[in-house]
Lab assay of single mutants.
Amino acid sequence: MAAGGDHGSPDSYRSPLASRYASPEMCFVFSDRYKFRTWRQLWLWLAEAEQTLGLPITDEQIQEMKSNLENIDFKMAAEEEKRLRHDVMAHVHTFGHCCPKAAGIIHLGATSCYVGDNTDLIILRNALDLLLPKLARVISRLADFAKERASLPTLGFTHFQPAQLTTVGKRCCLWIQDLCMDLQNLKRVRDDLRFRGVKGTTGTQASFLQLFEGDDHKVEQLDKMVTEKAGFKRAFIITGQTYTRKVDIEVLSVLASLGASVHKICTDIRLLANLKEMEEPFEKQQIGSSAMPYKRNPMRSERCCSLARHLMTLVMDPLQTASVQWFERTLDDSANRRICLAEAFLTADTILNTLQNISEGLVVYPKVIERRIRQELPFMATENIIMAMVKAGGSRQDCHEKIRVLSQQAASVVKQEGGDNDLIERIQVDAYFSPIHSQLDHLLDPSSFTGRASQQVQRFLEEEVYPLLKPYESVMKVKAELCL
């Protein structure tokens, strides 16, 4: 049975990233139509530049190519590739079939990587351009969430054990800070992308030097003109047959890092959902379990974690691919890159769409948070109580021993009897502590235990987050809708 299948058929496997999760716009960027249309555009740009620099290419040939950029006979191309065992030459023939007058000058002087690699770089750039505003929107939604809850005390956790208090907004800023680093890295790697350009079979530009009869300047002009037509500021000066596969490492490393950030955020949300302090959106008709109707599973956060793990592992592909590119190139890269580049971007696209949807509907339960604080705060307040007693004339050592005994009794009630923490009640009825009984409410005010959390939130948002989001103001209103 021949390899390949009808990918629109229910009898043929289709990647869930495309069929179930990723956005239509990201799927289109990695589609065959987008790819092969870009090949034709690159052939047109090459012909236009070659004509401008004096090669015998007519206006009629150029116009014929322009008129057929979208006229792609995919069936013919597939048949040609089956016959020739070469995808680029299959599309040269297919393009030439609908451009008979231009057929002889299509791909003039070029090698397969002229269309293959340059198209990949265009796709990487455009895919990054799709991700950047999506990530900015996630940051914006979380920034709104953090600002609104900047002063809401909550129990902090280290080692997932109760620690000092923080605020809900401050905790959210930990998430935002990681995503801001990801946004900066995505922008950097996007701006650092260079075009492969017009380089020939081993990167020496020998074929173009021959076409222009040894004119170095025209060869350099050709490279520059096509690079500018493709919208790049610069091209690699040095290439082998391909652009260095280190570029793929750079791009997928940034995406993998984004995956790590999203995994951490969504894990926190899942843990908070278990504590009943916070939940992701839950639709009115949504079913959490087929057997347990009360369940409210954090399905979206779980999906993000599941896909983020996949995204983090994909960076190993370009690392290994770059390491086995012998001399000017081997074909070890080809099949692998067809999979890992598309999957990385479709996965990143999915987790950003999902995280935006989550961040637009996060639900906080202040009463649950308050109750958990009441359970733990008495123990945390013991040092403040000791200091207040010393100020009232008591002995630190005597007070410490009193607190120690009462704390152990209260802990026994919590752990052995399943009761509430009654340390404060014990202190309130103990005559030894009568000098500070009137101060206990103040000493137990949760806001006095959150330090500068709310001020940190305000400063972080104003100095770091809002300036970073400013270039994306025009796209901030787009909502994230999930079908599944």
Rank of each mutant, 00 (worst) to 15 (best):
A3V: 10
G4A: 15
H7E: 10
R14Q: 15
S15G: 15
A18W: 14
A18Q: 10
S19L: 06
Y21R: 00
M26F: 03
F28C: 06
F30G: 00
R33D: 08
Y34C: 09
K35M: 11
R37S: 09
T38K: 06
W39M: 15
Q41T: 10
Q41W: 15
L42K: 04
W43Q: 07
L44M: 08
L46E: 05
E48I: 12
E50M: 06
L55C: 10
L55H: 08
I57V: 09
T58V: 13
E60T: 10
Q61N: 07
Q63M: 13
N68H: 09
E70H: 12
D73L: 06
F74D: 15
A78H: 07
E79S: 11
R83C: 11
L84P: 00
L84H: 07
R85C: 10
M89F: 15
H91K: 01
H97Y: 13
P100A: 09
K101M: 12
A103P: 08
G104L: 12
I106W: 00
A110H: 00
A110E: 04
D117Y: 00
N118E: 00
N118H: 06
N118T: 05
T119Y: 14
I122F: 10
I122T: 05
L124V: 14
R125G: 07
R125M: 11
A127M: 02
P133R: 15
P133S: 14
K134E: 10
A136S: 14
I139Q: 05
I139N: 15
I139D: 03
S140N: 15
R141S: 15
K147Q: 14
E148W: 06
E148H: 09
R149V: 11
S151N: 11
S151V: 10
L152G: 03
P153Y: 06
G156K: 00
T158K: 02
T158A: 02
Q161D: 00
A163C: 02
Q164T: 05
T166P: 06
V168N: 03
V168T: 07
G169K: 03
G169C: 02
G169M: 03
R171A: 01
R171H: 05
R171N: 00
C172L: 06
C172A: 08
L174M: 14
W175K: 05
D178Q: 07
C180A: 12
C180W: 04
M181L: 11
M181Y: 10
D182L: 04
L183Q: 09
Q184R: 10
N185T: 12
R188H: 14
R190E: 07
R190D: 06
D191K: 07
F195S: 06
F195R: 02
G200S: 13
G200T: 00
A206P: 05
S207E: 04
Q210K: 15
D215A: 13
D216R: 07
Q221F: 09
L222Q: 01
L222M: 07
K224Q: 07
K233Q: 07
R234M: 14
R234S: 13
A235G: 12
A235L: 13
I238T: 07
I238H: 06
I238A: 09
T239I: 10
G240S: 08
T242Q: 07
V247S: 10
D248E: 10
D248W: 02
E250T: 11
E250M: 08
V251K: 00
V251S: 08
S253Y: 09
V254Q: 08
L255Y: 04
A256Q: 03
S257Q: 08
S257K: 10
A260C: 07
H263I: 05
I265D: 01
I265Q: 15
N274A: 13
L275G: 06
K276M: 06
E279I: 02
E280L: 00
E280V: 00
Q285D: 12
S290Q: 00
R300V: 15
S301H: 06
E302Y: 01
C304A: 15
S306K: 02
L307P: 01
L307V: 15
H310C: 07
L311I: 12
T313P: 08
M316E: 05
P318S: 07
Q320I: 12
Q320W: 09
A322M: 12
A322G: 08
V324Q: 06
V324A: 14
T330H: 02
D332S: 00
D333L: 02
A335R: 02
R337H: 04
R337D: 03
C340S: 11
D349E: 07
I351M: 14
N353F: 05
E360S: 12
V363L: 13
V364Y: 02
Y365H: 12
K367I: 04
I369M: 10
I373R: 03
R374T: 06
P378G: 04
F379V: 02
A381S: 06
T382L: 04
T382N: 05
T382C: 09
E383C: 05
N384V: 09
I385T: 06
I385P: 04
A388T: 06
A388N: 02
A388F: 02
M389K: 06
M389N: 10
M389V: 08
V390I: 04
G393E: 08
S395D: 14
Q397N: 13
H400M: 05
K402G: 05
I403Q: 05
V405N: 14
S407L: 02
Q408S: 13
A410G: 07
S412F: 15
V414P: 05
K415Q: 06
Q416G: 11
E417I: 06
N421K: 04
I427R: 04
V429T: 15
Y432T: 09
I436Y: 05
I436G: 03
S438W: 09
L440N: 04
D441R: 09
L443S: 03
L444N: 01
D445G: 07
P446D: 02
S447W: 13
R452E: 07
S454V: 11
Q456D: 03
V457N: 04
R459W: 10
R459Q: 14
L461C: 15
E462G: 09
E462D: 14
E463Y: 10
E463W: 12
E464K: 03
V465Q: 06
L468A: 15
L469A: 11
K470S: 14
P471G: 14
V475A: 15
M476G: 15
L482Y: 08
C483P: 15
C483L: 12
